[in-house]
Design a protein around this nucleic acid. Structure first.
Length: 468
RNA sequence: GCUCCCUUCGUCUAGCGGUCCAGGACGUCGCCCUCUCAAGGCGAAAACACGAGUUCGAUUCUCGUAGGGAGCGCCA
């Protein structure tokens, strides 16, 4: 039997960070074992499912590079199949019709709670053996075994045991004819030949009921692996309050997909002291049974560090095209003018953690200085001799044979030697002249990226400003 | 309330009975480098939730306690 995993989101919102990690683990596990990864959209809740959410999930997965081998399949397109399997269960006496109204069920639960019991379905119709009748409240319920235990070896959590007495007769088919989650997953996972179910640990409680359904269908249950939750930095459930929850938001915030993947793979899993993993290494080394059992918190600081690692080490050409996307979002079109984005990447990759920051910092080379840092002006432009130094730099730059960081560096060094000044005395006024601030990449990069004409213009402006 | 699950530095984790007065990484702090900011280098502080067992020996095994989480839907 070939090894097959699946990711089965319900399209009720964007692909969130926990879902992304689940998808990643499913994908890695399939790739690691040379099996297949299937994408299935669980859209049986017609009230909450939307096409936009389906698209958001697809977009998120494709941005992350988590390509499925099969799918997406949609449960709403498999209605006939669920109906047939339901009939099969009914014929075999493993399911029965029940007719309680939602209010009655509600009262039943409340009464059980009041007694200190678990709120469960009483099984009132279980043994009535009535002929089927039309009724708006009619649902098909599973005849869950009354005794015995369900035992399974979770690949993450270890052995988990459950008394059947704890389980009630769950609804398989709703009164509107749609299958419930617990029923549809089992049918799908059997039909799609899924051999390993990897999902969030909020599903462990469903697993014993699903295993019973597998058995009722004379099918072998797959292996299960339940992943611990990802919490917000404060240890609370991850929510909008924590900022980025949808995966595509990370793109907008300037993270590289590989960095996010690397961060996610290390959240709950590790391989010795290793922190950086190429996709190939993840596939080679990942094993679902090495995943941790406890919830982990999301740490933006570490994600930022990882992102910078990729910014620094990936091919600058590739980073440059990502940077262009972010520049566009700021209304800058680098193809029209200004420095080449690759040079910008090289100048800034050691100084920022995200592409978004990089684009914002790159602004000074694509557009005029918007705002002067008055403290910087006072300290460096209006300092004694600053205007004179700027004038000398202007002259040297104007005469440079080639406009390169090396040539600019040589010119500044020469200037420093001529006047026996420290580099700082020259670099800082220049920096303020070019950027309006006292923070930027190395002075030769800063000047180089501005371009010769623009540099000379800005130096002139700064000299004027110094005089005022 | 009931059932199930979880518990090593602030955070992510290593550890699978002695190698641990607990290792790495992020973050923090200090020093070095230095034209600013970073990056980089070096170094420091920082954890086995608690209590019983089992054992010659427990971070590692068992059981409790405490704390946290999940589920108990005609939602997935």
């Amino acid at each position: 039997m070939t090894f097959r995993t699946r990711f089965a989101p319900s399209p009720t919102g964007y692909l969130h960070i926990g879902g992304a990690r689940t998808a990643l683990y499913c994908w890695l596990e399939a790739r690691h074992r040379g099996g297949q990864f299937i994408l299935r959209v669980e859209d049986t809740d017609r009230d909450r499912s939307t096409d936009a959410a389906v698209q958001a999930i697809l977009d998120g997965m494709s941005w992350l590079g988590l390509d499925p081998d099969e799918g997406p399949f949609f449960q709403t397109q498999r209605m006939e199949r669920y109906r047939a399997v339901a009939q099969q269960l009914l014929d075999a006496g493993k399911a029965y019709w029940a007719y309680e109204s939602k209010e009655e069920l509600e009262a039943m639960r409340a009464a059980a709670m009041a007694r200190g019991d678990k709120p469960r379905y009483s099984g009132a119709y279980r043994d009535r053996d009535e002929p089927c009748r039309e009724d708006p409240n009619r649902v098909l319920r599973f005849r869950n075994p009354r005794d015995g235990r369900v035992v399974f070896d979770d690949k993450v959590k270890g052995r988990i045991e459950w008394d059947n007495a704890e389980l009630d007769d769950l609804v398989l088919v709703r009164s509107d004819g749609f299958p419930t989650y617990n029923f549809a997953v089992v049918v799908d996972d059997i039909d799609m030949g899924i051999t390993e179910v990897i999902r969030g640990d909020d599903h462990v409680n469903n697993t014993p009921r699903q295993i019973n359904i597998y058995h009722a269908l004379n099918a072998d249950a797959p292996a299960f692996a339940h992943l611990p939750m990802i919490l917000g930095p404060d240890g609370q459930k991850l929510s909008k309050r924590h900022g980025a929850v949808g995966v595509m938001q990370y793109r907008e915030d300037g993270y590289l997909p590989h960095a996010l993947l690397n961060y996610l793979v290390r959240l709950g899993w590790s391989h010795g002291d290793r922190e950086i993993f190429s996709i190939g290494e993840m596939i080679e080394l990942f094993d679902i049974s090495d995943v941790n059992q406890s919830a982990s918190r999301f740490d933006f600081a570490k994600l930022g560090w990882l992102n910078q690692q990729y910014l620094k080490n990936d091919n600058p050409l590739e980073i440059a095209s990502e940077l262009a996307w972010h520049l566009n979002r700021l209304g800058i079109d680098p193809s029209i003018g200004g420095p080449c984005p690759v040079d910008v990447v090289i100048a800034l990759r050691d100084r920022v953690q995200t592409l978004k920051e990089m684009a914002e910092r790159a602004r000074i080379w694509y557009a005029p200085i918007r705002e002067w840092d008055e403290k910087a002006v006072a300290k460096h432009l209006r300092a004694d001799g600053a205007a004179e130094v700027l004038g000398a730099a202007h002259a040297k730059f104007a005469e440079l044979k080639e406009w390169s960081p090396q040539a600019i560096h040589a010119a500044i060094e020469e200037l420093a030697n001529e006047r026996a000044m420290g580099m700082g005395k020259i670099a800082q006024p220049l920096r303020v002249a070019i950027t309006g601030t006292q923070v930027s990449p190395s002075i030769e990069q800063t000047v180089y990226l501005a371009g010769r004409d623009e540099s000379l213009r800005r130096i002139d402006d700064a000299i004027d400003k110094a005089a005022k």
